[in-house]
């Protein structure tokens, strides 16, 4: 059979599209100019005086746009809530993902504390190094995902503790904001002492907010993954 017969029209069209996109992206890439002065550079200029954090992204997420982060966390909570309503939470786990594998169980037991520790490191050092609440929370949740995949039904998640963590961190975020109204001037204002750039206890409320966000995200993604793994076999 010749090669020509196997090539469909769809393949040719998508190949042309891919090459067109490649050429466009390359031309955009070669003409990129990284030196424009915009909102970003002005934020970088005022960052050190206002927040004393080493990571500008963190100060944007938790200070300059703190209210947006609150809305984002609420949207995440609502979407997980909707998934929990939509997926029936059956008590049995699908057996196809959890082989009875001794090596995997041992490795997961060794790796799980390391992954959770790394996630909390990322959360706590959000204002000093890259990362923060969302990233660290997702890393913690991936540690729980590893344990769920390795152990299957034998790994019990305590839903009461997860719910307590999730609600307390959400309430704590709002409480920090209201304290900002009382002690400072506006919602989520930075009322704590700022400290020195580069130290762990510095830049006011930003690490506290990121710890709350990290706990909330970790709890929510863990529950999401567990919902997916625990659903009944449809087919």
């Amino acid at each position: 059979m010749s090669i020509k017969k196997n090539i469909e029209l769809q393949t040719i069209i998508s190949g042309l599209l891919v090459s067109f996109m490649t050429i466009t992206l390359l031309s955009v890439l070669l003409g990129l100019d990284y030196t424009d002065k915009n909102l970003g550079s002005s934020l970088i200029d005022i960052n050190e005086d206002l927040t004393r954090s080493a990571n500008v992204v963190t100060s944007v997420v938790t200070y300059f746009r703190g209210l947006d982060t609150l809305g984002e966390v609420t949207i995440l909570f609502l979407s997980i809530f909707g998934i929990g309503l939509g997926i029936e939470n059956s008590p049995h786990m699908k057996n196809i993902l959890s082989y009875d594998n001794t090596l995997l169980k041992l490795g997961a037991k060794v790796l799980f504390p390391l992954i959770v520790l790394f996630g909390f490191y990322i959360i706590i050092h959000g204002h000093l190094s890259p990362g923060g609440g969302f990233q660290g929370g997702v890393i913690v949740a991936s540690g729980f995902l590893l344990m769920l995949l390795a152990y299957g039904e034998a790994f019990h998640l305590n839903h009461k503790i997860i719910t307590v963590f999730e609600s307390l961190s959400g309430a704590g975020f709002v409480l920090i904001g209201i304290l900002g109204v009382i002690l400072g001037d506006i919602f989520l204002s930075n009322m704590l002492p700022l400290g020195v750039v580069g130290q762990l206890f510095s830049s006011g409320i930003m690490p506290i907010i990121y710890i709350f966000v990290g706990l909330k995200v970790a709890a929510e993604i863990t529950v999401l993954v567990e919902y997916f793994l625990r659903t009944e076999d449809v087919g």
């Binding site: 082989y99 594998n101 090596l103 995997l104 490795g107 060794v110 790796l111 390391l114």
Partner: peptide, 15 residues
């Protein structure tokens, strides 16, 4: 970390 994870994942893939 690489020494821990890489052989483990390959063992699970082989299985």
């Amino acid at each position: 970390f690489i020494l821990l994870t890489n052989p483990l994942s390959s063992s699970i893939l082989a299985r």
